[in-house]
Each structure stands twice: as C-alpha cells, then as structure tokens.
C-alpha cells in the first residue's frame, strides 16, 4: 500500500504497529475465549468465537504482510461443499456414499469436493436443523435403515426427497446402484465425454450384467442405461414395497428431526428390550 504523500512514513509505521498490537491482543483474548468455551462444553459459542478469531487473524495478515499476497489466493471453491454434494446427489437421485458423490462431482462438475469436509458435514447439518428447523431450503441427511429407522452407515441423502427415497432396505443398495447408473449414463449421454466420465461409467458397467457390450475399455452410456434398467426391473417392486412400508412407519413414529436424521435412542431402547422390531416383522 503506497503511503499518502502528505503523511510522514515514520508515523505510518507507528500507526500500523499500534494497530497490529491491538490486533495481537485481540487474537490472544479470542484464543483464550475459544479455549474457555471448549472447556465449558459450549461448542456453539466456540464456533462463533473461532470465526471471529479467524477474521482477526486475517486482519493481522493484511496489516503485517499487506494485501494481495499469495496467502489470499488460497483456492476456495466457488460453491460451498453442501451445495456441491447437493448437486451430485440430485444427479444420482438416490442415497450415495461420499466416495461416489466425490467421483460424480469430479466427473460432471468443475472442481472437486474436498473429502475432509464431508465427514463433518452431516453433523453440522443435523445441528443446524435442530437449532433452527427448516431454516435452509434443503438439508443433507443420512439415509435411514428400513428396519430400525436409524442412520445408515456412510450414505447421504437430501432432505427434500420423499421419505421412501431416503430409506434403505436390504435391496436398496443394489437398486440405488442401478438407479445411479441410469442417471449417470443419461447425464453422460448429454454432455461431452471426459476421461473422468468414462472411468465413472466403467465403474458401473463392470458390475452390471450386459453393460459392457461394446469395445473393451469403453462404455456406451445407452447400453449401460439399458442393462441397468433391465436389472432394476427385477428388484424395483420388492425394494419399493420395503421402502414405502418403512416410510409409513417413519411418518407415524418419528418427529421432524427424526424423519430426517434418524432415531438413535429410540431404536436402541427397542432393540434392547429383546423383541423383534416392527421392521423385522413386517419385512
């Protein structure tokens, strides 16, 4: 930053020094406050303080290092992670594991989803919903298991989907895999054929009977979609039946948060009693 000509340079430095001293004092105070908040178990306050601390540190960076340095060039994705995941899930149209979400996003959208962010995403979403229900247009939530209506391991879904779509029964893993294959093949048929897309198509085609009719190593999206539809026809009705039965139970038994994020304690108490749960009797 070039100094204004009518201000003596020495004064500028002392001013900056005073400002940075104040900033450093504030950073120190904020750090202590974050620590206190964590020690008191108040994570909400800690997060607020932490973001204030980050702002103060950025201001310090600016004051000491000057603006426009490479440090400010850290590539932030233009789209927040939750929107990235939402886009990929909307394309897939079925609950999916973070790994599949990542490769779908990388194949069809610009940029990558940073894997480390996905782990905390689900927790953040649930906390956000519980503090202010329905404040956001959509939430990313876990898929729920059909028998116990508890969060399924490592499967993400979108809150705006119908309840039955967010529930996974025993057949759903395969049915959703085939649904995803059809959706990905359709999307690939519309757009340009990158190497990422081909890899993704291959991942589906290799494990669906009759999907690899063409030349070795390449996948025709139309053939893949056709093969996936053929197998999906076998499973669809049974799977839908199980999911809808479970969805009815979820609507009848659970509150709003439970329908989105699953019931842990409820399910535990029920299994703890030793009786077969509804899900296991009605399946």
């Amino acid at each position: 930053m070039p100094a204004a000509p009518d201000v003596p340079p020495a004064e500028t430095t002392t001013e900056t020094a005073a400002a940075t001293d104040a900033l450093e004092a504030r950073i120190g105070d904020l750090r202590a406050a974050v620590r206190r908040a964590i020690a008191n178990g108040d994570r909400q306050a800690a997060r607020v303080l932490r973001s204030e601390l980050r702002q103060a540190e950025e201001a310090w960076d600016e004051a000491v290092l000057g603006s426009g340095g490479p440090a400010h060039d850290v590539r932030r994705p233009l789209v927040p992670v939750r929107d990235q995941v939402h886009q990929a899930l909307t394309l897939l149209g079925a609950p999916a594991a973070p790994k599949l979400i990542g490769s779908v996003y990388a194949a069809f959208f610009p940029g990558d989803i940073p894997g480390s962010r996905l782990t905390s995403l689900r927790r953040d979403e649930e906390r956000s919903f519980r503090t202010a229900p329905y404040a956001r247009p959509f939430y990313l939530c876990p898929a729920l298991t059909a028998d116990l209506l508890s969060p399924a391991r490592g499967l993400l879904a979108v809150s705006t989907w119908p309840q039955a779509q967010r529930i996974v029964g025993p057949l759903s893993a395969r049915a959703d895999f085939l649904t995803a294959a059809i959706r990905v093949a359709e999307q690939a048929g519309r757009g340009p054929d990158g190497s990422g897309v081909q890899r993704l198509l291959w991942r589906f085609a290799a494990n669906i009977p009759g999907a690899t009719a063409g030349t070795v190593g390449t996948v025709d999206p139309a053939v893949l979609a056709e093969a996936a539809r053929a197998e999906l026809d076998v499973h669809r009705d049974a799977d839908r039946h199980q999911r809808e039965r479970a969805a009815e139970r979820a609507l009848a038994q659970l509150d709003d948060a439970g329908r989105l994020f699953g019931s842990r304690l409820h399910a535990l108490r029920r299994t703890g009693s030793g009786n077969a749960t509804d899900g296991e009797n009605t399946r």
């Binding site: 298991t145 969060p151 057949l171 893993a173 076998v234 399910a267 703890g272």
Partner: peptide
C-alpha cells in the same frame, strides 16, 4: 441368481456398536 442382492449391514446397530446388540 440376479434377484439375490439383499445386503444387511450388521456392523452397526442403530448407531451402536456394542457386541451384545
């Protein structure tokens, strides 16, 4: 057979990993 695809995950029961459960 093709219809035989059912998959039951028994690693976690309702978010709980206790062995008895």
């Amino acid at each position: 057979d093709v219809p035989e695809v059912a998959y039951d995950d028994l690693e976690v029961v309702a978010g709980n990993e206790s062995r008895e459960l």
